[in-house]
Computed example of a mutant assay.
Amino acid sequence: MVSMISSDWTRQTNGGSTLTSNASANVQYSYLVNNQVISITYPALTDGSILNTAYT
């Protein structure tokens, strides 16, 4: 098993045509050097809760 994290990335999800680094408009995901996704964190919902999905 590869245990080294390769990178963290963000992907805009708000549908806007203008790119933004605002956390409320982006999904953040981390993956291993072998390109397997290890976690995805979605923007906060209106009630402040945050959905985080972890893959093992």
Rank of each mutant, 00 (worst) to 15 (best):
T41I: 09
S7G: 09
S49R: 14
N34C: 10
S3A: 08
N14D: 06
S39L: 07
S39A: 11
S39F: 04
T10S: 08
S17L: 13
N34V: 02
D47Y: 02
R11N: 11
N34E: 10
S6K: 15
S17Q: 12
A44E: 12
T18W: 08
Y31P: 01
P43L: 11
I40Y: 07
N34M: 10
I40P: 11
L51G: 03
M4T: 06
S49C: 12
S21T: 06
V33M: 07
S30Y: 00
Y55T: 00
N26M: 00
S24M: 10
A44F: 04
I5F: 03
N34A: 13
A54R: 12
R11M: 14
T53E: 11
A23I: 01
V27F: 03
A25W: 01
L32Y: 08
P43S: 01
I40A: 11
V33S: 06
V37L: 05
T13D: 15
T18Y: 11
S6N: 12
S21Q: 09
S21D: 13
Y31R: 11
N22E: 10
R11D: 06
Y31K: 09
N22M: 02
T13V: 15
A44R: 13
I5G: 04
V2S: 07
T20R: 02
A54W: 05
W9G: 03
I50S: 03
G15Y: 01
T53A: 12
Y31T: 04
S49L: 03
N34P: 05
N14I: 00
L19T: 06
I5D: 01
N52H: 06
N22F: 07
S30K: 00
V2C: 10
A44H: 04
A44Y: 05
S21K: 13
V37P: 00
I38G: 08
S39E: 14
M4E: 12
N52P: 02
A23Y: 08
S3Q: 07
A25V: 00
T13N: 15
L19E: 13
L32E: 01
T53L: 14
S17W: 06
V33C: 08
S24P: 00
Q28A: 12
V37T: 14
Q36N: 13
L32N: 00
T13M: 15
S24K: 10
S30P: 00
V37R: 05
A23V: 10
I38E: 09
G15L: 03
S39K: 13
S3H: 07
